[in-house]
Design a protein around this nucleic acid. Sequence first.
DNA 1: GAACTTTCCGCAAAGGTTTGCGCAAAGCAT
DNA 2: ATGCTTTGCGCAAACCTTTGCGGAAAGTTC
Lengths: 338, 338
Amino acid sequence: MVKHRISLKDIAKELGVSISTVSRGLRDHPDISDEMIVRIKELAELRNYSPNPMAMGLLKQRTRMIGVIVPDLVTHFFSSVISGIEEVAKEKGYFVIVSPSNESFLKEKENIGNLMKARVEGFIVCLSQETTDYSHFEQIIEAEIPLVFFDRVCLKEKVPSVTADSFEAARGITHHFYENNARRIAYISGPDHLNISDERRMGYLQGLADCGLEFRPEYLQKCDLSTASAAMATRRLLILPAPPDAIFGINDTVVFAAMKEIRNFGLTVPKDILLVGFTDEFHATVVNPMLTSVMHPTNEMGKVAASLFFELTDNVGFPPKSVELKTKLVIRESSVRK
Amino acid sequence: MVKHRISLKDIAKELGVSISTVSRGLRDHPDISDEMIVRIKELAELRNYSPNPMAMGLLKQRTRMIGVIVPDLVTHFFSSVISGIEEVAKEKGYFVIVSPSNESFLKEKENIGNLMKARVEGFIVCLSQETTDYSHFEQIIEAEIPLVFFDRVCLKEKVPSVTADSFEAARGITHHFYENNARRIAYISGPDHLNISDERRMGYLQGLADCGLEFRPEYLQKCDLSTASAAMATRRLLILPAPPDAIFGINDTVVFAAMKEIRNFGLTVPKDILLVGFTDEFHATVVNPMLTSVMHPTNEMGKVAASLFFELTDNVGFPPKSVELKTKLVIRESSVRK
DNA sequence: GAACTTTCCGCAAAGGTTTGCGCAAAGCAT
DNA sequence: ATGCTTTGCGCAAACCTTTGCGGAAAGTTC
């Protein structure tokens, strides 16, 4: 059992005053004399007093905790978004509890249930790839608990969100491929219901149309964001009679897996196939050749998500905002033909 | 403000019984009749009641939260360790609050201060690379709060810990290099005060001695675990009059940075330089050539750390345990010469 | 000197839950 | 009928902090 922690009662007893005097003294209440305030603060400091958040929480019905649900931990993308969230949250005196769903719908629901039980004051969420049923979010909305989505979002008419300009980014990639003499351009997508999959697919189609290229269904392959299924999607492209001469994937991890498969096939990047990813992970510059990728303003995404969150507590009843941040294509070796 | 949550009082009022009856009924107390228990549970379920953790916490001085401090989020290593911790913690009805220190001593201290304020029931910690002053941990020990270290550890005589067999692993790497005809073997270390740095260095030295190779100080370069300093350490090796023909690094991220530097230098792996890393990240199989690395039983490390944590609450006063887990060298292209 | 005002404290209720202990009613033994 | 035991509840204290409001003592005004 933990040693007894110092409470207002202990301070009060030692100073020979009441608990309410100590409580007010620590908060510079005008009813308390300056002399008394000094005595109280000095002793509190000496005794290493800090208020008990459970008592405060019980009284004010506040935990000062925000639940953040991400589908994956091990990417710079999410790490940087979380950093942005924490920066804004900390300014407001809030904790962030990160709960990875590991791309599992059931785990996502379970995490939300657990965080509800822990009485977090609200949620900032990026959907798992399996999530198509949003009823667990409807319950949060129903309970009037603040909720914000980022990157992979849903219920935009009810919940504020911050995303990236995926459509334009995918369109830009397709243009970039075309400008590097690629004519058989493929896209390895994720699950259809994810807004990022769909927006990138639409951008890809628009890009093809822009360049006067015909859409070929066999050049649009899906995977479930695992490296194994990404490898299989790549294989399906490579064994085509007229395999693609350029491929982009829904994120860098998918493209890393594609890169392995291309190499296993005895082909080389960029000579045989141009390659581009999304999210610009650290390893984009480690792999050989270095990977062209779409850089997201991830830290800003986190900050915007947290700002939207705090705006919610101030502005109940306003229509939810949707913020779209601009991305940038970082061109490296993998997508350039001399 | 959040809508009113259902409390025992509400259930009691609706059933026309007392709060203590409802409280006991929900817990199958023998003083409460079976009939009453059924009525109470049915209504609680219908009203979606869940106990308020702040009230419980105030009463029992428990938060059911464990603070987990890791130096870095974006590696499969830490992600998998955290998974192991969470698995055991969840079995015990506990939450895990993950606080990354981002390899910063000050951030580590701040995180601990914040988690103390949040009244987590204890800590499971992996040291930041900057940590040489352990007074913030001494304070935890002093307060009789459970504390366990993993991977990068300190205060082993006071605090239970779980590590990997770094000495044997480094020794094995050195042997492996030797068996692949490397004779100028280098090690890119981390900060000296980290046990993993030191143990791997000792294993390296032992391995050199085993193979009848002379230790050359210029083949032992240090970095601070950032990719920039890893690149510089690599450069210092490459510009030597007799540069190494094999290099291993303290972790995969360091080795990925080395890989880039070697390529920038116009050299190739493994033809010119054999390469090996630690922690066997996912990208070890993406990079070309695929990287040989030391695989750690990370999920088990997490489970052992959490088990040690819960043992602490049961067995106060016992000498702290030190568990060392076995690693495995996964041999791939980067360290094999035909 | 009396009446009124100001200063600077303290009491106790409240948040939600657990639990020691008390009590009324029913059951049982003599 | 009486006395004892068992059953099945309820009361209220406790955890820690904030805060509305009350009150004693000092200060001010007439």
